[in-house]
Simulated assay, not measured.
Amino acid sequence: METSIVGVGVGISDRFRTVTEDKSARIGTLAPRAQRLDVKVTHRAYHNGAREEETVELTVTGKGPLVRAEATDADKFAALDLAVDKLAEQLRRAKDKRVDARNHPRGPKLDKGSGALAGIDVQPASADVLQAVATGVIPIVSSDDDEEYTPVVIRTKQFDAEWMTVEEAVDRMELVGHDFFLFIDARSDRPSVVYRRKGWDYGVISLTASAPPEALAS
C-alpha cells in the first residue's frame, strides 16, 4: 500500500515516517483492498504559543469508499497511535456490520407498493433547521465582554452532493467514523442525514421542501 505523508506547520522527521510505515502494515491487514494511505499532520498553536497540539488525519483509499480518521494530541506520535486505533475500530465495525447483516437481515425495508420505508426512525426536520438551511445562516452567540477571542472554533466544509440509498449512507458513515452522514436520498431526491443511535440502530432525518413564509403571506 502506497503511503503519503505531509506536514502543515510542522516538519516530518525520518523517525515519524518509519513509524507511520510500520502502522500502515496494520491498516493493510485490516483493509486488504486499500491501495493508498494519506497522512496529514497539522501543527496548531493557541494563545501565543501557550498551548500547542498536533492533529493527525488518516485517509485510506482503494476499491470502495474511502475510510478516514483523525486524532489530536500534544505529541504527534501519540496522535498517530490514536488515529490508527480509531481507523482500526471503524474497519472492524464495518466488517462486523456486514457479517451481522448477512446472518441477521434487518434494518430499513422499502414497501414497493406504498414507497414507505419501515424499520428506521424517520422524523421531519424542525422549522429552525429548515430556516437555517434555506438562508445558509448559522446563529452564533457572541459575548460583548470578549469580542476578540472566543474558544468556539467553527470549521466549515463543503462537499459535492451524492445520491445514494439510506443503507449505502449508513455504510459510508461507518467507514468515515462519523456520528452522522449527509447525502441525497436516491429514492426521494431529498437532502437527508443518517445518524448513529445505539448498537446497530440508526436514524434518518430528511428535509421536505415547502414554500417560505413570505410566499405564503402573499
Rank of each mutant, 00 (worst) to 15 (best):
T18H: 08
V19R: 15
D146F: 09
D146E: 11
G62S: 11
A211R: 08
A74W: 01
D81T: 10
T156A: 13
R36F: 05
P213Q: 07
R15Y: 04
E174K: 01
V84K: 05
L182E: 07
A88W: 01
T208G: 08
A127I: 01
G11L: 00
E167F: 04
Y46H: 14
L37D: 00
V129D: 03
W163D: 11
G115T: 05
D81E: 15
V56M: 12
I184Q: 10
S142M: 09
T20D: 02
G199K: 05
K109L: 10
A209Q: 07
H43F: 11
V67S: 12
V194T: 02
A116Y: 02
G203H: 03
S24T: 12
A134V: 00
L91M: 12
V152K: 12
K112H: 10
A50Y: 07
P139D: 06
G28K: 03
M164P: 07
D171G: 11
E21A: 15
D144T: 10
A209W: 01
D201E: 14
P191K: 04
T3H: 07
H178R: 09
K95H: 15
K109N: 06
S210D: 06
R106A: 15
A83S: 09
R98Y: 06
E54P: 00
G136T: 04
S142R: 13
D38M: 02
K86W: 03
T156S: 12
L175Y: 00
V193I: 14
V6D: 09
E174M: 14
D144W: 05
L66D: 11
L82Q: 13
Y149G: 04
V6N: 14
E147T: 12
D14E: 11
G177V: 08
R33Q: 10
K157F: 13
D144A: 14
I154R: 12
D14V: 02
E167I: 10
I120G: 06
V133L: 04
A79S: 14
P212C: 07
D81P: 03
L117K: 03
R196W: 05
S114R: 01
P191N: 05
A83T: 04
K112E: 15
A132H: 07
R93Q: 12
D81F: 06
P32E: 01
A118M: 04
K86M: 06
L91V: 07
L37Q: 00
F77H: 14
W163P: 01
I5S: 10
L110V: 15
D185P: 07
P105T: 07
S218G: 14
I27T: 00
T3M: 13
L207S: 01
N48Q: 15
I184H: 06
P213D: 08
D144M: 10
